[in-house]
Design a protein around this nucleic acid. Structure first.
Length: 704
DNA sequence: GGGGCAAAATTTTTT
DNA sequence: ATTTTGCCCC
């Protein structure tokens, strides 16, 4: 049966699937059927050689990709396969679950996100009385990350004038250890430590896994390389798949040399190039080839395709970013009005800040869209608050979360009380005990607030293994009077925030059903899973246009792609102009963007763009000149944006009859204004007995 | 301790 | 231009 499947493949793909004699590097050009090759290879191993699925390790870049790969293998094998598909981070978590004791951690560890990391560093540096100009928490955080990833030593930082760097990092690591918590880098760092410094562990896993596949190998860092090597160097049972032309994460430690030097690092390695592109139109592929040919740091591939040339690439130049956004919106609308589905369209930009003007334009034109990246569901304040309560209930030593909820909602506990709590915790007490001591010494007007907190923690701990997960969320919401707090602090959108908390409860229930975890374990697993969720993992499959940064678009494809902001200083970004290497990375980024497009590619730029409130002239991106002019058709300005474009509110059209809506509490109302679209639109309506109210659309019924 | 105001920061890309 | 932070006063 598997032999029959091989007939679907071209010669190079087939060779890539069936080759097992030595370590294998598959240089997979964009759209060359890489996922197909990996899934067929896994199916082939199982069918032909009888490999045990759970002893095949496949590492992907996102959880979404992992899920899809698993599904596709199971489709091929017509049944459950149980292949071990993970991201590097989730693989490391699995490893640490079993062996964390060896690196001085308990197995029920917590993973902290970058927000926690920032707060922790902020506290540490405040305590050390450091100049916040030089010692910026986020900057120091990324330096710590670089040190943990082996990019440079702590001494190098001290040499650069950060003479307290080592102290900060040590304190930071100690605090994490006291909290039994890992940051993102620690997961890789300690997993690598397990595999390289504990030979029994390395032997156990390298003999357990019959084969290891690593996808997106061009974006692996030093530590990930070491992990790969530790797992496979004995038997050479490894296949890495990647494309050096798509390496776009060197700034966070990805080492392009991992892929460039694979043959040196894995003796006897074989290299197979996949150069036939099945995704892009001829025109789009020619443009991509022409652009990437300007790079020097590469192994060199030349993609070709049997696809038709297709439509020319369009280029639009707007006077400013708003006109650019308006053009994008209008064009999207026209495409949707004809034959294209919204979910077939993606709009890319270099920096998150650019999304704003595009969003405004789409909203004004009534186009449904989703943003991949940006503020994630679990990063919303109300969600982080409730999660902090959960964490305090679960982890007595979680110092970050106790401070987050200490006076949220307000319960009369200010800076002085916080300072006292801090002292008590510094003396080595757990959260609960510290609060109890605090209660004894607190002035009368603070006692109630502290009692409330103690009650939530004690009661929560009793209930955590008894209540259903969403009931615990409800208990917290009620016990902390969180709904009152939302009503008071967020008059505009408290309802949708409360709805988000309910959604958190639902997600917990689903997670419980799907994974079978219960009680404390459930919450712990859930928290760690959401911390490791990527932007793409949160992507919806709804009928919406998708907006995202070029980085976030990695691995995806769309029939229609817009690449916006093609200007010097923006794309390539101004912070990447100092070196040839950085320019090459920007070019790879542009190459990634181009090759996401299947049928139609639309490029845009603006002659002037707003930065920090003031307009600045901008030159066309050098990358535009690298595309052969005969592939491009310039689009002329036609309809200008309306002169009232500063006005973000779209008023109800006058020629239409007034809409009447119904609300559970306020009754019938007449719509005055609508801001936004869909379920999340803010509707301002006049209610006979309650006056004008602004309500989220999903809480309203539209009456005929 | 919290509300109100002025000053300062914001924009690279993220697991 | 908008959002976040920091400071002052009640």
């Amino acid at each position: 049966m598997i032999e029959k499947l091989l007939e679907d493949l071209n010669e190079q793909q087939r060779e890539a699937v069936t080759y097992f004699d030595s370590p294998l590097l598959i240089l997979a050009g964009a759209g060359s059927g890489k996922t197909r090759v990996i899934t067929y290879k896994i199916a082939y191993m199982i069918e032909k050689f009888g490999y045990e699925p759970e002893r095949i390790l496949a590492v992907t870049f996102t959880n979404k990709a992992a899920r899809e790969m698993k599904e596709r293998v199971e489709q091929l094998l017509k049944g459950k396969a149980g292949v071990f598909v993970a991201t590097f981070h989730s693989f490391c978590v699995r490893l640490l679950k079993s062996h964390s004791i060896r690196v001085g951690y308990k197995p029920n560890f917590l993973i902290i996100d970058s927000d926690d990391k920032k707060n922790l560093l902020k506290n540490i540096m405040k305590e050390m009385n450091l100049d916040t100009d030089l010692y910026n928490p986020v900057a120091i955080g990324s330096m710590i990350s670089n040190v943990k990833n082996g990019l440079f030593s702590a001494e190098a930082m001290e040499f650069r004038g950060y003479d307290r760097f080592n102290d900060i990092m040590e304190t930071y690591n100690n605090k994490l250890r006291e909290m039994n918590a890992f940051d993102f880098d620690d997961l890789l760092f300690y997993a690598k430590k397990l595999l390289t410094e504990h030979d029994d562990i390395r032997k156990r896993y390298s003999s357990f896994f019959q084969y290891v596949l690593i996808d997106e190998y061009q974006d692996t860092n030093e530590i990930q390389y070491e992990i790969t090597k530790a797992l496979t160097i004995d038997k050479g049972n490894v296949c890495v798949v990647g494309d050096e032309d798509q390496c776009i994460y060197t700034w966070r430690g990805a080492n392009i040399n991992n892929i460039l030097n694979f043959e040196k690092d894995f003796p006897g390695a074989k290299v197979i190039k996949l150069e036939k592109n099945y995704r892009c139109s001829g025109v789009i592929l020619s443009a991509a080839n022409a652009v990437i040919a300007h790079n020097k740091i590469r192994k060199g591939k030349k993609l070709f395709t049997d696809n038709e040339d297709g439509e020319p690439i369009r280029l639009f130049v707007g006077v400013n970013d708003q006109e650019e956004a308006y053009f994008v919106g209008k064009t999207v609308k026209r495409l949707i009005d004809t034959e294209i589905r919204p979910s077939d369209i993606a709009i890319f930009y270099r920096t998150n800040a650019q999304s704003r003007s595009i969003e405004d334009a789409l909203r004004r034109l009534g186009i449904n869209y989703q943003i991949v990246g940006g503020l994630k569901f679990y990063e919303r304040k109300e969600i982080k608050d409730i999660i902090a309560y959960l964490r305090v209930i679960l982890f007595d030593e979680d110092r970050l979360s106790i401070f987050r909820i200490f006076n949220t909602p307000k319960r009369g506990l200010g800076a002085a009380a916080e300072e006292k709590l801090k002292k008590l915790l510094d003396e080595g007490r757990g959260n609960l005990e510290a609060l109890k001591v605090l209660l004894d010494t607190a002035p009368t007007r603070q006692k109630e607030g502290i009692k409330e907190l103690i009650h939530i923690i004690e009661e929560g701990r009793e209930k955590v293994n008894i209540l259903k997960p969403y009931e615990l969320v409800r208990f917290i919401t009620i016990a902390a009077r969180y709904e009152d707090y939302l009503r008071k602090e967020y008059r505009e959108d408290w309802e949708s925030r409360l709805e988000n908390i309910r959604e958190l409860g639902n997600t917990l229930e689903e997670f419980a059903e799907r994974t079978g975890f219960k009680g404390e374990d459930l919450f712990l697993e859930f928290l760690n899973t959401i911390t490791l969720s990527s932007d793409q993992d949160e992507m919806e499959e709804a009928e919406k246009v998708t907006l995202m940064t070029v980085h976030a678009s990695k691995g995806l494809e769309f029939p229609v792609v817009f690449i916006t902001g093609l200007e010097e200083g923006l794309f390539p970004h101004v912070r990447s102009l100092d070196s040839a290497e950085q320019i090459e990375e920007e070019r790879r980024l542009f190459y990634v963007a181009i090759t996401r497009a299947k049928k139609l590619l639309i490029l845009t730029r603006a002659e002037s763009r707003r930065f920090f409130g003031t307009y600045r002239e901008s030159e066309p991106s050098r990358f535009l000149e690298e595309i052969p002019p005969n592939l491009i058709k310039k689009v002329m300005r036609k309809d200008r944006p309306s002169t009232t474009q500063t006005d973000k509110v779209s008023y109800v059209k006058k020629d239409k009859k007034p809409k009447i809506v119904f609300h559970k509490k306020f009754g019938k109302g007449v719509v005055r204004r609508v801001e936004g679209i869909g379920d999340n639109a803010k509707v301002t309506a006049f209610f006979a007995n309650h006056g004008e109210k602004t309500i989220i659309m999903k809480f309203l019924k539209v009456l005929a």
